[in-house]
């Protein structure tokens, strides 16, 4: 058996007295698209953020390429080949679009330069038009594109996305998921966390269901899409 790219092994995490993750285990293999679905407050964002040490996990281990990274300083993690597109996008509002993208190249010591910028502009031509505009003046969808583009600037092996569809119009969501498919096809492993289970399960090879900080179910994307419990809990109206 090959070692997974990311192996999360029995991790727990707390926010003050509140336990957000209860011995969660999951793994992501190279080349996969993995979705983690769950309701608001299930611990999805905590799971992704804890990979970067916010918060630090209080038990278990996070192995990336077979190295335990659970104690690694936050700023060293991106350089190992992980990139996070966080919840709420978190673009730098007072910086231009181009500067935001350049920030994404920090893990590779700003070496990436024009070739990577061009690659991102190809994924999202709109960003090229807006490159001199302040990120804070972009619409939600444009900011999401910028956040994904920023993540791609470091040429990550594993791209982690936290609710890329949150608060966006259906047409934009469709476009973003199409782009994620293109990114995956170019050889990047993707892990995305979503409340929008419908889109996420259609895109994903495999998926996990997170409930109250605990993995309750796992299976292929299509299996979970067909599961009546999942349909009732996460796909109501879909």
């Amino acid at each position: 058996m090959t070692t997974p790219l990311l192996d999360i092994n029995g991790i727990s995490a707390f926010y003050g007295p509140i336990q957000a993750l209860r011995t969660v285990s999951l793994h992501i293999d190279t080349g996969e698209i993995v979705a983690i679905i769950g309701a608001n407050g299930a611990g999805k964002s905590t799971l992704l953020m804890s990979i970067f040490g916010h918060p630090r996990i209080s038990g278990g281990e996070i192995r990336y390429n077979n190295v335990d990274i659970s104690g690694t300083p936050t700023h060293r993690i991106a350089a190992m080949g992980l990139a996070l597109v966080p919840e709420g996008r978190r673009v730098f509002p007072a910086m231009t679009v181009a500067e935001n993208l350049l920030m994404g190249a920090t893990p590779v010591n700003d070496r990436s330069g024009d070739a990577d910028l061009d690659r991102v502009y190809q994924l999202f031509p709109l960003l090229k038009e807006r490159r001199k505009q302040r990120a804070g003046t972009l619409s939600g969808g444009e900011q999401q594109m910028l956040a994904i583009g920023r993540g791609m600037m470091s040429r990550p092996t594993l791209l982690l996305l936290d609710e890329p569809s949150l608060g966006l119009a259906p047409i934009i969501v469709q476009r973003i998921f199409q782009t994620l498919r293109d990114i995956a096809d170019s050889g990047v492993t993707i892990c995305l966390v979503e409340q929008n289970a419908n889109h996420a399960l259609r895109l994903a090879d495999r998926a996990y269901v997170l409930v109250n900080g605990d993995i309750k179910m796992t299976g292929s994307g299509s299996e979970l899409l067909g599961n009546p419990d999942i349909r009732r809990a996460y796909l109501a109206g879909a």
Binding site: F52, H54, R90, M103, R150
Partner: peptide, 12 residues
């Protein structure tokens, strides 16, 4: 502008 995000992007 966002210290945690800067850290995640590799800024010490």
């Amino acid at each position: 502008q966002d210290r945690i995000m800067a850290g995640i992007l590799g800024v010490n």
